[in-house]
Design a protein around this nucleic acid. Sequence first.
DNA 1: CGCCGCAATTGACCCAAATCAAGGTGTAAA
DNA 2: TTTACACCTTGATTTGGGTCAATTGCGGCG
Lengths: 248, 248
Amino acid sequence: MGGVTAETGCLRLTPIRASRCAVCGVREASFCAVLSASELQQLHAMSSQKVFEPGELIVEEDAAVRQVANVLSGTIKLFKLLPDGRQQITGFLFGGDFLGPMLSGEYATFAEAVTRVELCLFDQDRLREQMDAWPHLERRLFEDATATLDRALDWMLLLGRKTATERVASFFVMLADRVASRDDVQLTVDVPMSRSDIADYLGLTMETVSRQISHLKRQGLLEPSGAHAFTLPDVPALRRIAGGNEPN
Amino acid sequence: MGGVTAETGCLRLTPIRASRCAVCGVREASFCAVLSASELQQLHAMSSQKVFEPGELIVEEDAAVRQVANVLSGTIKLFKLLPDGRQQITGFLFGGDFLGPMLSGEYATFAEAVTRVELCLFDQDRLREQMDAWPHLERRLFEDATATLDRALDWMLLLGRKTATERVASFFVMLADRVASRDDVQLTVDVPMSRSDIADYLGLTMETVSRQISHLKRQGLLEPSGAHAFTLPDVPALRRIAGGNEPN
DNA sequence: CGCCGCAATTGACCCAAATCAAGGTGTAAA
DNA sequence: TTTACACCTTGATTTGGGTCAATTGCGGCG
């Protein structure tokens, strides 16, 4: 019962969030949702929390540490680099998402905090051991990987075959889907990342992204809502453009 | 022990290959590699074989059947379509690869035989039940999904950021890696797919692929070897071009 | 063998998006 | 309020790869 709560001074170990799972805002969204109360307690005992500032690299790789994490809050970008610096963002992580082992094929994947980010960290090997004991945990992480693969394959279609307009529309549809909510309702999405991050996610340049956003604004499909957010008055229309039907 | 061997007449059930796992050419390459002799026998009892001709759609989706399969031989292309027909190939499968459930995000994935293909089919639900009983099977399929995700993310970098030359070089490097073998040895790779399939895999047009192949031929990095194969005299050089370093 | 038909190659031209180049805007600090 | 700086927008120009259009090459077959 004593718990980890009082570990202040430690560099970056966050005392901000009471670190008990009971009050964790993303418990139901994360893999923790499949765990029983006692399992949660066990897992909590082997977790630690950490905060990253915007722009900070979240290494957790090739360092001997080998950790994985749940994103408690904030936005992370995952990306790959070509030797000459060209960058492709392979995905964004938001609160509740799982930051798995950065398995690398030909190119390493890096993770960087876009906003201030709070992570709930686990030792990768210890979590793997738990997977042996808790098949439902393994099943859940499997499903997670499967969903990630799914999104990656959809994104390949975007990168290989969609026009600039379609890509930018797809980007906002993606954000809308992550915020959930209904299609027919006009909804507001946060856009914490820079134009140039969006470009690196869509395989475009910053300038093209900016022009396309302006165009969508003129069409009334995008309304600026504060510094880092847009209101989407007609998500179905956006979705139509994203899909690649639109005559113009 | 009678087994499945003699089921001839059935449409497409292949009697070509003696369907006993003991003589299966891809057993060691497929997920079957992690199974014991008795487990293999059990699994074999619930398998069936089927042949597909070039160009044939391998549906196994939305049809009530819901099957998954090991590829015994041949080449399969997996692809997604935009409503207007634009196509993105998300991957190729070769002998030993696992053709999993065609989970679909926004866009459905289709599978089509490129060459004549032999599959070893399993009912998806039955295999899932076996996963509960055999954790090592689940672990192996998890690793498979993970490797697929890995390759997909690398490919996103290609589709979003690489030039035409780099893409085509990457394609041959990918083939070389699948054939395994060493880098410094000159090796020959089969290229069973059409130029236009290659283009749909690389996010280019047939014409651009053809031009780039001609260019690589002139550089002496690619030598035609029969109708559907190339010899790669210098894979490291190809790899350098693919990576995005090459001055020219 | 020679003809057919399709896939691949090659050439000429074009265009969507990249690149290059100013400006504008918001915000935070002085 | 002014300055500073980072980010974003917009405009002008270029270009890599797409499109359109012939050839060429080759395997199958009468």
